[in-house]
Amino acid sequence: MDKEIILITGSSGQLGTVLAEKLQKKYGVENIIATDLRENPTFNGVFDTLDVTDFEAIEATVLKYKITQIYHLAAILSANGEKHPLSTWDINMKTLFNVLEVSRIHKISKVFFPSSIAVFGNNIERSNTPQSSNLTPSTVYGISKAAGENWGKYYFDKYDLDVRSLRYPGVIGYQSLPGGGTTDYAVDIFHKAVKNEDFECFLSSETMLPMIYMDDAIRATLELMEAPKEKITVRTSYNISGLSFTPNQLASSIKEKYSSLKINYKPDFRQEIASSWPMSIDDTQARKDWDWKPKFNIKTLTETMLKNLELKYNNNLINS
């Protein structure tokens, strides 16, 4: 088999940071081309600055490195996107179209496009939300992801471009700071606990949302991309489930170690967004098609997050 050379857009984000490292281990450091809008001096590997709204720049990168696969992660997220909806739509869709067109023209073998539970609206079954639910999103981010799912399917049906996608729940990881998503309270609370700071939650205490630990999210991504083409029956985006909890349940789990953690619940505009999203996800199709199964529960997630953030902050104190 020919060597895979993989381009990642938006590689400095929460997901891209970890995904790049995992792909390097699998395909070799020199075969992973990480890109983002700004320089990333701490990245260990091949990194280029790339504006994904610039078609010619993407095409030049694909030709320069002889790219065979693209993981297109660059996007403006849900909460930040609501501040500037028109520019969010323009950026999210233009970058996707550029990636799809470059991939079609230059016969890229596989494209990964991350979708989100933000594609769902408030007219769904919020418990065990089915794969085939109506998509009436309440945010411009969700609208762009729902449109992106259909464009991915279109390029597969029309041009046989192998576009694959996952509807990520809230992704929780210790590797980077919150990035402007509605579920990011579930990352920030761990940082506050380890730093012995009070935490102000922008969602109500009983807002149940589906989440996934970073290791599970990355593993799901790689398992999907490595699955045989004939096994992929969903050409919009697969539901995947990790676990579901409320801010209160997560706080209780953290308080088993950090009993002094203080929380003030102060719901803002993100509460309305969260209230339109699923409380849990039915991922039967992913389990059936490519044997998906999450490994982390709230206890193991909490233990892993706290352990790694303690190491991170202790090292920072030592090095400062």
Rank of each mutant, 00 (worst) to 15 (best):
D162P: 09
Y265L: 09
I172D: 03
F245R: 06
A146W: 04
F113M: 12
I76C: 08
A118S: 13
A286S: 11
Y27C: 03
G45M: 00
N196S: 13
S204C: 01
Y65G: 06
K94L: 09
Y185N: 14
Y154N: 08
A146C: 05
H106M: 03
N31K: 06
I33S: 02
K299C: 02
L209R: 13
P267Y: 04
V29E: 10
Y213R: 03
K66M: 09
D160H: 15
I117M: 06
A220F: 12
S237Q: 02
V171N: 08
V140C: 05
N150F: 15
Y168W: 08
E125S: 09
G13I: 01
L309H: 10
K257D: 14
I240D: 15
L77P: 14
L63F: 05
R104T: 14
Y71M: 08
E310N: 04
T17V: 04
G173V: 02
I6R: 01
I70L: 00
H191S: 13
S165V: 04
S320G: 12
L37I: 14
D54V: 03
Q131S: 02
D2V: 03
K3S: 12
L166Q: 08
T233C: 12
D283H: 01
T304H: 01
G81K: 10
N44G: 08
S276A: 15
F190P: 00
E230D: 12
S11D: 01
I172R: 06
F97K: 14
P247Y: 15
D36C: 05
S144F: 05
A193C: 07
D188R: 12
T129N: 02
S132N: 14
D48H: 13
R104P: 07
P278D: 01
F113L: 11
K66S: 13
I6Y: 05
Y155K: 13
N314P: 02
S260C: 04
I70S: 00
A146L: 07
N297T: 08
D188C: 13
K3D: 10
L77E: 06
Y71W: 11
A251M: 14
D51K: 03
T302G: 00
F55H: 14
D188F: 06
I254W: 11
G180S: 05
V140K: 06
Q271D: 15
V18S: 10
N314F: 04
T9K: 03
N319P: 09
S165D: 03
G45P: 01
S260I: 07
I318E: 14
I318F: 15
S176G: 12
R287E: 04
M305D: 01
F47S: 02
F199S: 01
N92T: 13
I273D: 01
D157W: 09
Y71D: 06
L224Y: 09
S275P: 09
E230N: 07
S115A: 11
R167W: 10
I263A: 00
T49D: 11
M305Q: 01
I281W: 00
S280H: 06
K94Y: 05
N98G: 14
T53N: 14
E4G: 05
K299E: 15
E82Y: 12
K255H: 11
K255F: 10
P228S: 06
L250N: 07
N315P: 10
Y71H: 09
S252P: 03
W292M: 12
D51C: 06
M93D: 14
S132E: 14
A286F: 03
